[in-house]
Amino acid sequence: MNIFRLAGDLTHLASVLVLLLKIHTIKSCAGISLKTQELYAIVFATRYLDLFTTYISLYNTLMKLIFLGSSFSIVWYIRKHKIVRRSYDKDQDTFRHYFIVLPCFVLALIIHEKFTVREVLWAFSLYLEAVAILPQLVLLQRTRNIDNLTGQYVFLLGAYRALYILNWIYRYFTEPHFVHWITWISGLVQTLLYADFFYYYFQSMKNNGKLQLPA
């Protein structure tokens, strides 16, 4: 495992911790999209299904369990927790799941590395992850005033994707036959979706001000 990959995983872990911190200690999920969180839960459930069939490393197994557990508990908090759920911006978070899930599944049936259950689900989870952030970005745009933890959560998620791209570049040059177009292109698309957010995030850091997206 190279340094970019490790840094990417740890950034991903940090993003989840920031979100759990916000929900658990402040008891608020204001500005957080339940749709995005549910899509992530589907992403991890389909991608990490091989948890019980193939063993890769203790690190791999532990991380998978953490991402599965955290994504489902975040969904539970927003839907069921008696205090947290009151802060959910339901009227603003209007993205339709099937507009995203269905096309991703069809695409996975057409484009995959191999026509096996594992590979089709793997491709599906990659396509879905690429666009799962969209409801969250739409919600940010609508909320305009974004609190620090929400801003940091989205920033860390974007940073995690950027580090994965560096990881693939590194692996391409150091490992023989390391070519994975499906992973790379969907990962690149996913990272590009953050470009706009990154721009305003750094702008607000430079001006030492609050993160605000233009209308």
């Binding site: 890769i56 791999n60 998978k64 994965y164 990881n167 692996r171």
Partner: peptide
């Protein structure tokens, strides 16, 4: 091993 490589990622 070549087919497995990408699946070590998260």
């Amino acid at each position: 091993a070549i087919e497995e490589d990408i699946h070590d990622e998260l």
